[in-house]
Nucleic acid binder design. Structure first.
Lengths: 142, 142
DNA sequence: CTTGACTCTCCACCTAGGGGAGACTGCATG
DNA sequence: CATGCAGTCTCCCCTAGGTGGAGAGTCAAG
């Protein structure tokens, strides 16, 4: 049982990839960008990560999914690691981002509606319509 | 004043830009990509558009706003122009896109929730911040 | 030793444009 | 006529957030 000297068991990039749901390429990219870093390298230069980064990458995915730029994600990770509470600032940023997201949601809902209108206008050519006076699409102008 | 012939009034790119709400750069880009094209060029090589493109660009904006890739937008414009009813196909694509959008909307709503959870978890450090005197804001670089 | 899976670095490419250089156009004025 | 100046032209490089491939090296098993 104990014979294994596998102290901090380090994960190769491929394992991290499959556990985090990101691609190997992306993880390398994130390393290059300084979001995460391998805890060490093998003799042969393989990146070795410890389990914590899998968790961090989960957070990264969440933040990226809300389209937070990598620069912001990096800062958040740094703050999280250092335990340093840059909170006021950080929370403000995230809150702002949340605002943007709900804006985006409503924008998308509008778009969705507009889209169905578009579809309906197209419905007219149900049978075969070569080129009647094309019902000029709504096309918002903003 | 009058010396100008009323001829199919063709618009210079800047006018098209301000009418469509896109930038000159973007319109040139769309020309290069074959989404739209100038009806002609002036002696000196200026692109001259007719009014119809302003309408088309409105449609482009709508479609782009739902993140339809330019390639799809191009096809839609072509179909619209030719009156050719690629509809079945086209509508299917748009419908699919609409589906993606509503998926995205719910994903975003989930994200929004997750985000607030994140914020709340951060709330815990509400009172005390390590390193109170010197505002050692980490995140100093970049 | 060899094989095969895995990883490394480096470089190019992608989308949807944006920035800016340097040259030219078009039009109004002096 | 010249001159000025806004508008436009093409060309090339840059961005973010990766993706893809080439060519070489690594690691463990057989």
């Amino acid at each position: 049982m104990e014979s294994q000297v596998v102290l901090a068991r380090s994960l190769q990039i491929g394992v991290v990839a499959s556990r985090s749901g990101l691609t190997v390429k992306t993880i390398r990219f994130y390393c290059d960008e300084g979001l995460i870093q391998p805890s060490s390298r093998s003799e042969g230069g393989y990146r070795l990560f410890d389990e914590a980064v899998v968790v961090e990458l989960g957070l990264v995915r969440t933040l990226r999914a809300m389209e937070l730029p990598l620069a912001d994600v990096r800062q958040i990770l740094e703050a999280r690691r250092s335990g340093a509470c840059t909170c006021r600032d950080l929370k403000a940023r995230i809150r702002r981002k949340a605002g943007e997201i709900s804006e985006k949601i409503t924008a998308m809902q509008n778009l969705e509606a507009e889209l169905f209108a578009l579809l309906n206008s197209w419905e007219t050519c149900g049978g075969r319509t070569p080129a009647p006076p094309t019902p000029v699409l709504v096309t918002a102008e903003r």
